[in-house]
Amino acid sequence: MYNFEYSRAKSVADAAKAASGDAEAKLLAGGMTLIPTLKQRLAKPTALIDLNGIADLAGIKRDGNNLVIGAMTRHAEVARSKDVKAVIPALAHLAEMIGDPAVRNRGTIGGSIANHDPAADYPAGVLGLNATVITNKRQIKADDFFTGMFATALQDGEIITAVSFPKPDKAGYMKFKNPASRYAIVGVFVAKTGNDVRVAVTGAGAGVFRAKDLESALTKSFLPTAVEGIKIAADGLNSDIHASAEYRAHLITVMAKRAVVACG
């Protein structure tokens, strides 16, 4: 690991100030992606700005029909939260399936979506639930937030403060795990709110995306059988030692069907 400067921010304003003065600085949240990256010398930031001391970035609140989860809320906290289990149980289930207990004790929702790993779980929940990402500067709809592989709409130094999830009528998440890393080979999040059905897919492409064919089939009939005959095109999907593009395409339909079953 190359060395860097380290500072502990006391507030979001404090962190924003430190970040705006140095384009090569990086925010440090749970460190579950950033520290392994530094250990491999794949990044060389001048400074790390630690968000762990900012108390008001962590925590889960109910705000009318929305669930607002602070950026520094750990995966373990979301997984066991009574509020999350009551309002969006599928989101608690998603958090419970991330990595392993020690990763869930540190990793945060803000870090996960800022990183936008193409195989990460939270991006599917955020896009599937039509959530809004709240930063220190603005609010960004999920449809505009994830822009490509490891890419988001965040500007340099912009800090996610929370994610606001509207309560769906029903939602379900299913992932086919990579047995070694536990990341998603394919993960599908399905949510139904009134007549609106959203299907978000992670693990299969360059980043999280919505599967429009599955959405229109489920809008007509919200049943597992409505999607089972749908063939997803393999063009442009990921192909690696874990799974071919064709296999991933097949898994999208299978996981979508199981996610609909999980909606109950």
Partner: peptide, 15 residues
């Protein structure tokens, strides 16, 4: 009181 990976946290974070 919580289990974490000591290879994935900086010593200075443990102040």
């Amino acid at each position: 009181g919580t289990s974490i990976k000591s290879c994935t946290i900086l010593a200075v974070q443990c102040e």
